[in-house]
């Protein structure tokens, strides 16, 4: 296990690269969902404004 973590001496390159890519994937998932949710909320606000009067 420690051999796996040390990556044959390349741990300082391999793990940051993996972590960074993983972070960007997660961020993209969050950002995509957020962008959709924002568009939906905005559309909903518009609809309720039209129905109000």
């Amino acid at each position: 296990m420690s051999g796996f973590l040390s990556m044959g001496g390349y741990a300082s390159s391999v793990w940051p690269a993996v972590a960074l890519t993983f972070g960007i994937i997660v961020w993209n998932v969050v950002a995509a969902r957020r962008s959709f949710a924002a568009a939906r909320a905005e559309a909903r606000r518009r609809v309720s404004m039209e129905q109000a009067p």
Binding site: M7, S13, L20
Partner: peptide, 13 residues
């Protein structure tokens, strides 16, 4: 050695 393993995140990106 194990340094090449970055390819598994670099190339797909």
């Amino acid at each position: 050695g194990d340094g090449f393993r970055i390819i598994y995140v670099h190339a797909p990106s």
